[in-house]
């Protein structure tokens, strides 16, 4: 039976893993390659690296991080952040990443999804979407608006419409991040996740808000997510991957056993 995936997210700034709350006040928490190895040994199903570096030098460091991760861990991993062209995608995929996550760049230039899918296959292209709860309106009928630039810029786009469009353009997966829940550790945005997951036929990764194993259970069972992104709860040592998986298994949720 297909397992629900548990994906650890590592935000990388200038080659170091960092953790922030609602995109504010980041602190460095370790070396991304060493952390990736630790989670791989623990039996995580997949990893995501978000490059939150702004500088060109930082981008080169990121390629090196991806290369070193690919030499040491043998599970899928994706890379997002600052990818604006198919050339950028090529560099990261060549360095050993499985998938590319596009977020703001895809909102500003949706063609990057179709171009990336045509060149590298849909399975390579993850749409990363940051969404924020707003009042329902004619323009935003779902009540969730797409935001970019780490939650600072409202785009006047409906999150559900954007998800469907990204699927049509060839995205292979959607990583859905709730700006309201991100960094709170109070649980995922279940309504948003359920809405998108039931409306597209590609897998949906829930992101933002995980603080304890019960939150993963909720988002799998109540919102139908295919995968769940976690960060703080493992980075800060509150839980290990085997603890989370063992809880979920006891709750009857299919997870990959750590052998």
């Amino acid at each position: 039976m297909l397992s629900k995936r548990i994906i650890v997210c590592l935000d990388v700034r200038d080659g170091k893993t960092t953790k922030g709350i609602r995109f504010k006040g980041n602190v460095d928490i370790g070396d991304p390659v060493e952390m990736a190895k630790k989670y791989y040994e623990q039996g995580v199903d997949e990893l995501v690296f978000y490059d939150i570096t702004a500088s060109a030098e930082g981008r080169d460091i990121m390629v090196d991080v991806v290369d070193r991760v690919a030499r040491n861990i043998f599970i899928p991993f994706s890379v997002g952040g600052g990818i604006r062209s198919t050339q950028d995608m090529h560099r990261i995929l060549d360095a050993g990443a499985e998938k590319i996550s596009v977020n703001s760049a895809a909102v500003l230039n949706p063609k990057i999804i179709s171009e990336g899918a045509a060149l590298f296959g849909s399975q390579c292209i993850v749409l990363g979407m940051d969404a924020k709860k707003v009042h329902k309106s004619e323009r935003i009928p779902s009540g969730y608006e797409v935001v970019i630039n780490g939650g600072r810029t409202y785009m006047g786009m409906d999150a559900l419409e954007w998800a469907k469009r990204a699927e049509d353009l060839g995205a292979g997966e959607i990583c859905l991040n709730s700006i309201d829940a991100d960094g709170t550790t109070d649980g995922y945005e279940l309504e948003l996740t359920g809405l998108i997951s039931s409306s597209v036929s590609i897998p949906v990764i829930a992101s933002g808000g995980a603080g304890k194993p019960e939150h993963l259970k909720e988002v799998f069972v109540e919102a139908g997510a295919d995968a769940a992104l976690i960060a703080s709860m493992v980075h800060y040592g509150w839980y290990t991957i085997p603890q989370i998986k063992s809880f979920l298994k006891d709750q009857g949720i299919p997870v990959r056993e750590v052998i």
Binding site: M1, L2, S3, I202, P203, R256
Partner: peptide
């Protein structure tokens, strides 16, 4: 969901040398 994406079991129907020593629970 399509694609079938993620970790899944395999049920070995017969032994094959390339699958020697593979744990039956492995995904």
């Amino acid at each position: 969901k399509i694609p079938h994406m993620g970790w899944n079991n395999i049920e070995l129907l017969r032994m094959h040398p390339v699958f020697k020593g593979i744990d039956g629970r492995a995904q």
